[in-house]
Amino acid sequence: MTGDCLGRFSKVSFSYPESSEPAIVDIDLDIRKGEWIAVLGSNGSGKSTLAKHLNALLVPTQGDCFVGGLNTRSDEGRREARRTVSMVFQNPENQIIAAVVEEDVAFGPENLGLAPEEIRERVRWALEISGLEKMSRKPVYALSGGQKQRLAVAGAIAQRPPCLVMDEATTMLDPRGRQDLMDVLAALHSEGMTLVTITHRLEEILLCDSCVVLSRGKICWRGTPGDLFLLGPRIDEWGLEAPAIVREWKILVDRGLIGPGTMPLIGDMVEALCQ
């Protein structure tokens, strides 16, 4: 494992006890420090199972998963994985533990046994970056869905993890809430945090450095978001839907109004549409 590698999947397979089919099969994947990687796939493709290995919530049935250079099978490796990787899940309601905003954000740092001043400092930082600093004493039930999801992010990042995994965390948000959350993620990425976005919405991967596509538990494609959009109809085969702008571009290419091969600029597309 190289120095700039935060997590490594080495021939990882995992089967749930209640299922005869493996959820993920022979996964080989490196996650580099500071990278923003998207894991894409339709429902049941194994992307959430993959994500849970990074936080050692799941341990491979076969193969090995390393976080911070340690195998997550060992107690030390599991502790390292929990310290290194924080997770935000789909439904914020099920991950908020305390009844008051700042008390919930403090839950993770309190578990780490930090000094009270350090906890308060981290809570203040996490609330500020999540845009919730004015709501620190609000009861959780008074927050909107988008605010609750930002609170879940604040709770995760207050542990100051080098890596944050977002497991379909935007699914229950409206477009405004989704955009607010993407802004928070962009801010965290600019501070050097490694991000793993688990999603089936291709609009959310535009800011990512790289992406992998899972289908039936296997990695079937890897590359950059730009390369992925160039694939056109193959995206649909994996149960994904390209963003509207990419679909429009494909129509223009098919009609010969614009040249294939590269993603066009918005201006070129508008010009082609006017023609």
């Binding site: 991950q95 533990i97 700042e102 839950f107 309190e110 000094a115 809570v123 542990q159």
Partner: peptide
């Protein structure tokens, strides 16, 4: 809770 490092009361501090 497990993902947020909760392992029981041992070693926990308070804000």
């Amino acid at each position: 809770m497990e993902a947020r490092n909760y392992t029981g009361g041992e070693g926990r501090t308070r804000m």
